[in-house]
Amino acid sequence: MSAWTVIRDEPGGRDKNKRWIAEDAASDRDQHWLWKYRQATGDGSEAALTDCAEVFTSRLAAAINLPAAECRFAILDGDLGLISRNVTPHGFNLNTGTSYLPEVEGYQRGPSAGSDAGGGRMRLDEGYTLDSMERVLEHVKALPGVGELSGFAVFTGYLVLDALVGNGDRHPGNWAILERQSDGARFLAPTYDHGSALGAGLTEGNRRDKDPMAFARRGRANPFSPRKQLLVDLALEAVGRSGADFWVARIAALDEASIRETLEAPQGRLSEVAYTFVEQVILENQRRLCHGDVGKD
């Protein structure tokens, strides 16, 4: 990794040390990768498993044929982290949901919570609902090669993935629309930025003491209105609205062996305690999605 070329730094967000890199400085931007260091746990005492969360979620998305940024474990100058491939193809512009939601009646962007004024998580938006998402994605399609799906059907897949891995950070900056420069056609960009999934910010002691099944059942879609919706509830409601129940069928088709394959990591990245916790969270959320455990938590 140290031999790669730094293309530019990536400003904003909680991680101030992200940078775009590439093996060849002259390569197209879809060959650029975003380097991210491991973040710290909430109390700052340990390195969080943000790299594992991103890589494992990327693999799970691939296992159900859901468009997602490809993520790989990486080391840069001796530091552990990951690289995430650019999701913007040549000939497209990418804009996050924060550019489109203000066009929807009833949506009001609130101040960022838990971050400085420069960016970060947006948890106080009003009117950020499935209704508003349907309106934003009304004329948005799936990317070529994904199938004849609506943008909302693909977004439903993102919510199903969030429920599987316990990603409660699907704020309007964590999804995007690609606009083709030639004709302005809009396509839903692959999902990206899953560093908050799978209890990545927990300390090792937290994982040892917590019941992973109970932890999974408390997973909430915090950015969405109304507040405190369960991730599984939101995902299954989106499935019902879009008719995209094939995402749940694909989740159901994952056996324990294939899930374990997605959790492979280089030595030293993941303790046995963390591995067991992550696996049990995924298996419990898989069960809940496939058995329709709505509102039972």
Rank of each mutant, 00 (worst) to 15 (best):
A3E: 13
W4M: 15
D9S: 10
P11N: 05
P11M: 04
G13T: 00
K16Q: 13
K18D: 02
S27A: 15
D30K: 08
H32M: 07
W33M: 10
K36Q: 09
Q39N: 12
A40D: 10
A40G: 09
T41E: 06
G42R: 12
D43Y: 08
G44N: 03
A48N: 00
E54L: 01
F56G: 03
L60T: 07
L60H: 05
A68F: 10
F73N: 03
L82H: 10
R109P: 00
P111Q: 03
A113V: 14
A117Q: 10
A117P: 02
E126P: 02
L137Q: 04
E138A: 15
H139Q: 13
L143R: 13
G145F: 06
G147Y: 09
E148A: 14
F155V: 07
G157T: 07
V160W: 01
L161A: 02
A163N: 06
V165Y: 09
G166E: 11
G166V: 11
N167D: 11
N167G: 09
G168I: 05
H171L: 08
L178T: 03
Q181E: 15
A185C: 12
T191V: 12
D193Y: 06
H194E: 07
L202P: 00
R207T: 07
D209V: 06
R220S: 14
N222C: 10
P223W: 00
P226I: 08
K228V: 11
Q229H: 11
V232W: 03
G240V: 10
R241N: 09
V248G: 03
A249E: 15
R260Y: 05
E261C: 10
A265Q: 04
S271T: 07
E272T: 10
A274V: 05
L283W: 07
L283G: 01
E284W: 04
N285G: 08
L289T: 08
